[in-house]
């Protein structure tokens, strides 16, 4: 199986007035396609910096970053924008849907910036909305949806461009435990379909769902191990199916409280 991400000796230094902050001090790891990685670490560990680099929102000070077969470490701003549009799917903690757009239009946004917005794309966006259980809310605005529903729109948006991997940043941080479970099940289902997921979190319960956990401290990787006591066993036994997702929709009907 090919590699989705290959990182070698990645460093990132921030120059502040007089001192240089070394946020990342040489990080190397690979993410094979179809993997489900949780990146953990206390604040100040370089977790956010790594996330920004993985998301191509920033450039490393040194080291290489192969996204699929392309070295994106030193690309120009415009090229990085194109990479983000076509090869990375973002899921944020606070959903980050665009308030003036409907559910379908929000899902369309990455395609718009790829320049691939056609009638077929529209169909695909509707299909994705149905897939995450929002088929009957295509024309709703984000404010008319609960937190869990908004996050499911965001997940649909993250896979609309068939990305190399989904990059989730504390994707369940704003959700209650029931909704968190639903979202994690949705991630697992996507992973089960062969999608690569990289999730940044500081919650062990969330990280337990991943196949693999990378722990950072002071800009170094301190551990990188396969998850042995993975909750997936339980989930896969239940065999998360569309019905479950649909029933989850019913349960999360109540508007978001955040």
């Amino acid at each position: 199986m090919g590699k989705a991400v290959e990182i070698r000796d990645l460093t990132k230094h921030y120059v502040l007035k007089s001192e240089t902050v070394k946020a990342l001090r040489g990080v190397s790891f690979d993410v094979p396609q179809g993997d489900y990685v949780a990146i953990m670490g206390p604040s100040g560990s370089g977790k956010s910096t790594l996330l920004n680099l993985l998301g191509c929102l920033d450039r490393p000070t040194s080291g290489s970053y192969m996204l699929g077969d392309e070295n994106v470490a030193q690309m120009t701003d415009d090229d990085l924008s194109a990479v983000r549009a076509s090869r990375i799917g973002f899921v944020f903690q606070s959903y980050n849907l665009i308030p003036q757009l409907t559910v379908v239009e929000n899902i369309e946004v990455p395609l718009y910036y790829m320049g691939k917005l056609d009638s077929r794309a529209k169909e695909r966006c509707c299909m994705l909305a149905s897939m995450v259980g929002l088929g009957d809310r295509l024309d709703h605005r984000p404010t008319q949806l609960s937190g869990g529903q908004q996050q499911r729109v965001a997940i649909a948006r993250s896979i609309v461009n068939d990305p190399e991997f989904i990059l989730a940043d504390e994707a369940t941080g704003n959700l209650d435990s029931v909704t968190t479970e639903e979202i994690l099940q949705l991630f697992e289902r996507l992973n089960g379909e062969g999608r690569t997921i990289i999730m940044v979190t500081h919650e062990d319960e969330v990280a337990e769902h991943a196949k693999r956990v990378i722990r950072l401290r002071d800009g170094h990787i301190v551990s990188d191990e396969r998850n042995t006591d993975r909750v997936i066993a339980k989930s896969s036994a239940e065999n998360v199916a569309t019905e479950d997702v649909e029933s989850a929709v019913e349960r999360s009907e109540s508007p978001a409280t955040n």
Binding site: L57, D78, F92, Y113
Partner: peptide
Amino acid sequence: TREIGVRRALGACRRD
């Protein structure tokens, strides 16, 4: 500002 950040993350370049 947040919307601008989101759009940039989702692939909008400065020109967009």
